[in-house]
Design a protein around this nucleic acid. Structure first.
Length: 590
RNA sequence: UGCGGGAUAGAGCAGUGGUAGCUCGUCAGGCUCAUAACCUGAAGGUCGUUGGUUCGAAUCCAACUCCCGCGACCA
């Protein structure tokens, strides 16, 4: 048994999740996690909402809300989305918990104590009207290189040169026309990233055999030339640094957001009543694999910088330190299977341009499985993919329904009508029977291998191939004909088909869990393959927060070719499980 | 401009030296248990362009074209 920690990107609680997010990170992680659970590994899936940072403050101001009210709104929407789509988190929390704040402050202290941080004065553009330092992006002015008058504080779109906001001539506030800007000095903690550079290089050195090349190349390239990076920010909405007389200085949002993987595992352990259990993932020397599922925009942070933080901290102190026998330092991610993007009509998803397909809305309208199925088919594992409602309809009607749904329906309804609603008792098996059963058993190894290597599209294709073989078998055997002359033989044929359906209900379950659970109920199974998601309010000293958790007590799924019991009663009259989509058209814009 | 990824039948993809494959769609046929679902067959590609290496290249090398992303305080 292995301990598998599945870490998902922390969505920024500033808007709803769209299908690009789902296909990019959440769905692949869930498919992978469900598979690992079925194999009997101990799996923990953690993530949460990223709740700090300037964009949330700006949005909140616009809507006349507090930042907390704003992110809590989107956090609640995320929880609904995950439940609706069946993204099975063991813990989905957020970054504004006391637990996260305390550990983030520990991170600061650890890095500082380990000599990773140093103080430096930085010149920054200050807004006199808003009484705060402006993010570089919010500053606009004349480019000192090409004289373009709408250069941004980080880059000039005209000449492409990278800039610093303080270099701009006649700087102005993009969001406040009559603002008065000045240049002020601010003292910040810098992270001396080059210190951990060699260790990061070593970490990346042995990943060739299983990391995706685009991820590895990108990371190595970046790791070659590391510079110190600011560790603190002047923020009003963030985690204050634990240093006296440093009001307004917060930990730069990115650093504490990635730390969420660790803090959420710790919170998970606490909620489970096993407060040390997180160390089995982060410190244990053997049988551990940490996976980070992200989109390609996050590669840098999850392949280089997050590792740098873990290396720089070494471990947490006091009761959070490694146990005897543990590694003296944090375990680093085993794999970072980053996906490319899903686009819509070739365009990047963009809320402001109205280019978006909201995941929650879609799942509410069509159910989770059609969405999961199609998104797996187009999953951008190698390159950008394109979402289309036409493709979605086709995938649902021509493959999910026609191949898998119909296979179960045609087989089980024949059994129900002609064999008293119970799995027939098979007679001697023919060569054709054996051949199909052999292929069916072999699929567990083949599909499992692809899933284990996070080649999910390939895994789905392999599983669906078996459904095709089963349909072919039924066509060739024609039990509806045979039954008129030899009922026992027809019973054997239907038994073989039902046996393959039983196998498929496991093979396909990581991808389309609801449908597979329903097929298994029709086959007469009482226990579900997977556990159940539920929300819970966690009480801390000063504030509560809503989390999503996973209850695995009822789960009885196993990644093995089980033997279907002859005589097992079906769960009632079979009825179609996949709904045909007549007209899938664009959802109304919200 | 720099770095990374990509360009293979109408669509989506697989294929890292040896006669171009898969799924969907299209067309034709078969079957009728099944949600007009299932099965079979066919049509459809000079593998982005140009040049090179090789007996032989989608596959290796070079140059070029186009698309996507990243380029640090933006999460």
């Amino acid at each position: 048994m292995e301990n598998i920690l599945v870490c998902l990107a922390w969505p920024y609680a500033n808007g709803d999740a769209h299908v690009g997010h789902i296909a990019g990170a959440y769905l692949p992680a869930d498919i992978f996690a469900r598979y690992q659970r079925l194999t009997g590994n101990r799996v923990v899936v953690v993530s949460g909402s990223d709740s700090h940072g300037t964009p949330i403050v700006v949005s909140a101001e616009k809507q006349g809300k507090t930042p907390r009210a704003l992110f809590e709104h989107f956090h609640a929407r995320f929880l609904q989305t995950w439940i609706k789509l069946g993204i099975s988190y063991d813990l989905y929390t957020h970054t504004d918990t006391e637990n996260h704040h305390a550990i983030a402050q520990q991170m600061f202290t650890r890095l500082n104590d380990n000599g990773q941080l140093f103080l430096a004065k930085q010149k920054q553009v200050y807004s006199e009207k808003q009484q705060k330092f402006l993010p570089d992006r919010f500053v606009e002015g004349t480019c000192p290189i090409c004289a373009y008058d709408k250069a941004r504080g980080d880059q000039c779109d005209n000449c492409g040169n990278l800039l610093e906001a303080v270099q701009l001539i006649n700087p102005r506030n993009r969001n406040l026309a009559d603002d008065v800007l000045s240049i002020r000095e601010s003292e910040h903690y810098m992270w001396d990233l080059p210190q951990v550079g060699p260790a990061i290089g070593e970490y990346l050195a042995d990943k060739d055999s299983y990391w995706r090349p685009q991820v590895l190349n990108f990371a190595r390239n970046f790791a070659k030339d590391l510079n110190p990076r600011a560790f603190t920010r002047d923020l009003t909405w963030g985690i204050p640094i634990p240093v006296p007389n440093s009001e307004g200085k917060c930990i730069y949002v990115w650093w504490e957001a990635v730390l969420g993987y660790l803090t959420a595992t710790i919170e998970w352990a606490k909620l489970n009543g096993t407060p040390e259990a997180w160390k089995d993932f982060w410190y244990a020397p053997d049988n551990v694999k940490i996976y980070n599922f992200i989109g390609k925009d996050n590669i840098l942070f999850h392949t280089v910088l997050w590792q740098g933080i873990l290396l720089g901290m070494k471990h947490l102190g006091d009761e959070a330190a490694p146990r005897p026998g543990d590694n003296p330092t944090f375990n680093l991610p085993y794999d970072v299977p980053a996906n490319q993007y899903v686009n819509l009509n070739g365009q990047k998803f963009s809320k402001s341009l109205g280019v978006s397909v909201e995941a929650l809305e879609l799942a509410e309208k069509y159910g989770a499985d059609p969405v999961r199925f199609y998104l797996t088919q187009i999953m951008p594992e190698q390159r950008d993919a394109d979402w289309s409602f036409e493709g979605f309809t086709q995938a649902n009607n021509s493959e999910l329904l026609a191949k898998w749904g119909n296979l179960a329906q045609r087989t089980l309804s024949q059994i129900f009508k002609n064999f008293d609603g119970a799995i027939p008792i098979p007679g001697a098996l023919t060569e054709a029977d054996q051949a199909l059963l052999t292929a069916s058993r072999a699929a567990f190894a083949a599909v499992g291998e692809s899933l284990n290597a996070v080649r999910l599209r390939e895994a789905l294709t392999l599983a669906m191939e078996l459904a095709g073989k089963a349909n072919y078998y039924i066509d060739q055997q024609a039990p509806w004909k045979i039954i008129k002359v030899d009922k026992a033989r027809a019973g054997t044929q239907l038994y073989v088909a039902a046996q393959v359906i039983d196998h498929l209900s496991v093979l396909l379950s990581p991808f389309v869990p609801d449908l597979c659970e329903a097929v298994r109920r029709q086959l007469g199974y009482a226990k579900p393959l997977f556990g159940r998601l539920f929300t819970e309010t966690v009480h801390e000293r000063t504030r509560d927060h809503e989390v999503l958790r996973y209850d695995a007590r009822e789960a009885d799924g196993h990644w093995v070719a089980s033997q279907l019991a002859a005589g097992q009663k079906l769960g009632g009259e079979p009825r179609g499980l996949v709904t045909k989509i007549e007209v899938a058209k664009e959802l109304p814009k919200t």
